[in-house]
Computed example of a mutant assay.
Amino acid sequence: MADAKTRHALVVDDDPLILMDASAILDDAGFSCHEAGTGAEAIAFLEVNHRAVTLLFSDVEMPGDINGFGLARHVDRHWPHIEIVIASGRIKPEAGELPDKATFIGKPFSARTVHEHLRGTMPEEKQPEPLRHAG
């Protein structure tokens, strides 16, 4: 994870098919993806690799003690340089559940929806080249 030009994303979802799909969508956008199945796995990964990660893309409902909203707050508090996108098809965040800079996207989502969301919400300097020049 040493290449400074590479943009890394951490994708977190307990559903293997959604995890695979979201990773493929972000890979197509130019991110190098890393995966976790729970909030605890995500935090463990970030404790070691946070400097290289540009984007957290997480589901809300996951097993364990920390859901996607809690993960977003933890990441915002400890690693504020990481952009945060939270996704769910069942739960929408209420006021105060997400950090101010975190954004929300509904499931199911398409590659186009995710790419447009990222282009519209991420600072351009944090976007991988393929994402910046797509669409």
Results as ranks from 00 to 15, higher is better:
residue 129 E to H: 05
residue 83 E to R: 14
residue 133 H to R: 06
residue 72 A to P: 07
residue 64 G to Y: 01
residue 124 E to C: 13
residue 42 A to D: 09
residue 83 E to P: 15
residue 96 G to P: 12
residue 101 K to C: 02
residue 76 D to A: 15
residue 38 T to K: 09
residue 8 H to W: 07
residue 40 A to R: 12
residue 89 G to F: 02
residue 4 A to G: 07
residue 101 K to M: 05
residue 129 E to V: 10
residue 33 C to M: 00
residue 53 V to W: 03
residue 70 G to S: 08
residue 57 F to I: 07
residue 3 D to V: 15
residue 53 V to K: 00
residue 11 V to I: 13
residue 85 V to D: 00
residue 41 E to F: 15
residue 65 D to Q: 14
residue 45 F to S: 07
residue 122 M to H: 04
residue 102 A to E: 01
residue 134 A to N: 05
residue 87 A to F: 00
residue 106 G to P: 06
residue 29 A to K: 12
residue 27 D to N: 10
residue 41 E to M: 14
residue 108 P to W: 00
residue 124 E to R: 13
residue 19 L to A: 02
residue 117 H to T: 09
residue 60 V to S: 08
residue 132 R to F: 09
residue 90 R to K: 07
residue 85 V to I: 13
residue 34 H to W: 11
residue 123 P to W: 04
residue 63 P to I: 08
residue 5 K to P: 14
residue 16 P to M: 01
residue 70 G to C: 11
residue 43 I to K: 09
residue 17 L to F: 12
residue 25 I to M: 14
residue 16 P to W: 07
residue 126 K to V: 04
residue 38 T to N: 03
residue 46 L to K: 11
residue 27 D to L: 09
residue 112 R to T: 04
residue 103 T to F: 02
residue 124 E to Q: 12
residue 53 V to I: 15
residue 115 H to K: 10
residue 94 E to A: 09
residue 132 R to E: 01
residue 40 A to T: 10
residue 66 I to V: 06
residue 36 A to D: 02
residue 135 G to Q: 03
residue 47 E to I: 01
residue 51 R to W: 09
residue 29 A to I: 12
residue 43 I to Y: 11
residue 129 E to I: 12
residue 87 A to P: 03
residue 30 G to R: 01
residue 115 H to A: 03
residue 116 E to L: 00
residue 92 K to V: 07
residue 119 R to K: 00
residue 66 I to H: 04
residue 56 L to Q: 04
residue 78 H to Y: 11
residue 125 E to R: 11
residue 90 R to W: 01
residue 120 G to D: 01
residue 22 A to I: 02
residue 12 V to T: 10
residue 66 I to M: 11
residue 9 A to R: 12
residue 94 E to T: 09
residue 100 D to V: 13
residue 100 D to S: 12
residue 39 G to N: 04
residue 8 H to Y: 06
residue 36 A to N: 05
residue 8 H to P: 14
residue 57 F to V: 08
residue 35 E to G: 10
residue 111 A to D: 08
residue 67 N to F: 12
residue 32 S to I: 10
residue 127 Q to L: 03
residue 95 A to P: 08
residue 45 F to W: 13
residue 3 D to W: 11
residue 71 L to C: 06
residue 57 F to C: 15
residue 127 Q to R: 11
residue 90 R to I: 00
residue 50 H to A: 15
residue 47 E to K: 15
residue 52 A to W: 10
residue 108 P to R: 08
residue 88 S to V: 08
residue 65 D to S: 15
residue 129 E to M: 07
residue 62 M to K: 05
residue 121 T to M: 05
residue 94 E to C: 05
residue 88 S to R: 03
residue 41 E to D: 14
residue 86 I to R: 04
residue 86 I to C: 05
residue 98 L to F: 04
residue 68 G to K: 13
residue 85 V to S: 08
residue 112 R to P: 05
residue 66 I to F: 03
residue 124 E to D: 10
residue 98 L to S: 08
residue 54 T to V: 15
residue 58 S to Y: 03
residue 47 E to V: 03
residue 20 M to L: 12
residue 42 A to G: 05
residue 25 I to K: 11
residue 122 M to E: 00
residue 1 M to V: 10
residue 85 V to C: 10
residue 59 D to I: 05
residue 53 V to F: 06
residue 109 F to V: 10
residue 102 A to K: 08
residue 87 A to M: 04
residue 64 G to S: 04
residue 3 D to P: 15
residue 119 R to N: 02
residue 108 P to N: 05
residue 66 I to E: 00
residue 43 I to P: 08
residue 10 L to T: 10
residue 48 V to A: 13
residue 6 T to G: 10
residue 68 G to L: 01
residue 129 E to W: 05
residue 134 A to V: 12
residue 30 G to E: 00
residue 24 A to W: 05
